[in-house]
Design a protein around this nucleic acid. Structure first.
Lengths: 124, 124
DNA sequence: CACCTGTTATATTATAAGTATAACAGGTGG
DNA sequence: CCACCTGTTATACTTATAATATAACAGGTG
């Protein structure tokens, strides 16, 4: 499973968990249809509370990354609806991120190198 | 000044304020050396508490976007130290952002188009 | 029937955000 | 000197959220 949580981070645990799973999907470490550990099992593995995992799963479900089957439990199921909404969200976040990059004197080439590298990693 | 705060957002007000100012610097709406409204004046303009503005200024000061002179008050002063740390931070955030983009079926071209557009806006 | 699944409810603690009021040190201009 | 501005600090309060804890429920599985 390999979920890494930074307990000294200012980012919420459930948020880190969501990000890790989304990162896992993008890097094909998680495949469509793959089962996720139960909320209790995942909580035990990481050493956190069941409800924290449940919140992450609920968020991922609402965002269309996870579905639940009573018989099987939670599993990866990527819903590719809302491409335009996703583009708008990415654009907004990108705008903030690149603003800070520019202020820090990162160049256009610096940015493109990073984007290219990550796209390659994700097989885009 | 033109600071826009979304009070229904889940993003903290002081964080939105920081982002707006960084965005302003990147788009040259704020120039190096330009004075910022005092914490009390800015708070009045936006309709929020003085301490919320003070927190934003303090964060920006720590991050090297703002300096303070007793005589003049707060003003823009971009410190371009820590380019490598900035690159690491951008890379980490970019990785999460592009992971979600990929899951939403945004293509490499989609991403590059967005990055190109924003870089152009910022004159990078 | 025991055991697992997600889900819900409730309560508690801790932390952070935002507001409110007040005061202090220090520079500015009348 | 004095009123007025600046950032800064301190304190207190309210609110919201995160995280934990304990418990229970509906439903599928062996």
């Amino acid at each position: 499973m390999l979920i890494e949580i930074d307990f000294s981070s200012d980012e919420a645990i459930y948020q880190q968990l969501c990000n890790q799973i989304i990162l896992g999907i993008a890097t094909s470490r998680f495949t469509d249809g793959e089962e996720l550990p139960s909320v209790r099992q995942m909580a035990d593995e990481i050493g956190i509370n069941m409800h924290t995992v449940n919140k992450a799963y609920t968020v991922l479900k609402q965002e269309g990354f996870v579905k639940v089957d009573r018989r099987r439990g939670a599993f990866i199921s990527v819903d590719d609806r809302n491409k335009e909404r996703a583009r708008t969200l990415v654009e907004k976040n990108l705008r903030v991120l690149l603003a800070e990059a520019r202020c820090r004197k990162l160049t256009r080439s610096d940015i493109f190198a990073l984007v290219e590298q990550i796209c390659d990693e994700y097989g885009m």
